[in-house]
Simulated assay, not measured.
Amino acid sequence: MTAFRKSLQICSISLCSAGLLSTPVLASEAVQWDYGKERGPDQWAVLDNAYQACGNGKNQSPVNLQNSLETDLPALTFNYQPGAEKVFNNGHTVEADYMPGSQLTLNGNSYTLRQFHFHSPSENTLNGQDFPMEAHLVHSDKNGNLAVVAVMFEVGATNPVLSQIWQQPLTAGEISEMEAAVNATGLLPAPKDYFRYNGSLTTPPCTEGVRWLVMKQPMTLSQQQLSSFQGMLSGPNNRPVQPLNARQILK
């Protein structure tokens, strides 16, 4: 990273970086939420009327991936260019916004990569088992429809992309510029098999209508990388799994 580091008040990932607001909202102006007891997931729905879907939504994320239906899912085509130049700690996660020009193609529809961020432990689970970390790569199409590619991480070999992203800890509100633009391709496993389900944002306002694409093959990160990420937060930043209700998980 270069010497460029500064404090910054940043809106929540679900409101600004996922493209749901056209202008940033400073954290001081937004309703504060977190992952604790008083303002955590169990309380999100009552913190603000705009967050009601967190409590009464029927297609909420994350979910436990089990009893999935075998089907012929369309291939995912990734065309990513180096595009992550800055990384920041918004108090809820460590996130990197992405420059325009990188696409995911699904069913002939093109989604632009907008940002990626991380959760530890994982939010989605597989047969009731969580993973040490999960990356969310957030995309939107020309109509504003969202598609999130989720990648699980196991402790193992060092991940080169993560080494570029957090070379040194960032405190809440800090932003840092990377030495060279990072290519998010390094966060994706080689096999592109995936689970698919309809869900929501996993943070307030928990907006539904999000297409979730969870990669079957996990990636690895070192224990040092995992500890570094966890040390930048005040505790776990995962929303508990939500009821599947009438939804079907496809694979």
Score class of each variant (00 low, 15 high):
L188E: 08
A184L: 14
D42S: 15
Q32R: 08
T93R: 00
D34I: 10
P24T: 10
A135P: 04
A181E: 13
L201G: 08
A135C: 14
H119S: 15
Q9F: 02
Q32L: 05
V46T: 08
V149N: 12
W166N: 13
W212N: 07
F131H: 09
S234N: 14
P243Y: 09
A190T: 15
K251R: 02
M215E: 00
K6C: 10
L187P: 15
I175V: 13
L170W: 03
V149L: 10
Y194C: 09
C206K: 02
Y80G: 04
C206H: 06
E177D: 02
Q9E: 15
A3D: 11
N159E: 06
M232C: 00
I13W: 05
A147R: 10
G186D: 05
F88I: 01
S102V: 00
M232H: 04
Y111D: 07
Y51V: 00
G55M: 06
S140N: 10
T158M: 00
N67M: 01
V161Q: 09
T77W: 00
H117S: 06
F88Y: 15
N56H: 08
T158P: 01
T112C: 13
R114Q: 14
V31T: 12
L244Y: 06
A184T: 04
L15F: 05
N56M: 10
A157F: 06
Q103M: 11
N198Y: 04
N109K: 12
W166H: 12
N198A: 03
P189Y: 02
Q66F: 03
Q168D: 14
E154M: 02
N143M: 10
D193G: 02
A190Q: 15
G144N: 10
E208L: 05
E134R: 03
L126C: 02
Q129F: 08
T202K: 00
V138L: 07
E134N: 06
F229G: 09
F116M: 14
P240D: 00
N64Y: 12
V210S: 04
L104N: 10
Q9S: 04
G173V: 13
L226I: 04
L213W: 07
N198H: 08
N127P: 01
G55D: 13
S7R: 03
L233H: 03
P121T: 06
G128T: 12
V182C: 15
G199K: 09
N64D: 15
L170C: 01
A53G: 03
L8R: 07
S228K: 10
L233N: 07
Q168E: 12
A75H: 03
T207K: 07
Q168M: 07
A84V: 07
Q248A: 05
T105F: 00
H139T: 01
T105E: 08
Q230N: 09
C206Q: 06
S12K: 00
S110V: 13
W44R: 03
N198P: 00
P24M: 06
S222H: 07
V148F: 11
A150N: 14
G231D: 06
L15G: 09
A96S: 13
Q230G: 02
E177T: 02
A181G: 08
P236N: 10
P74D: 14
A172M: 04
L104T: 01
D48R: 02
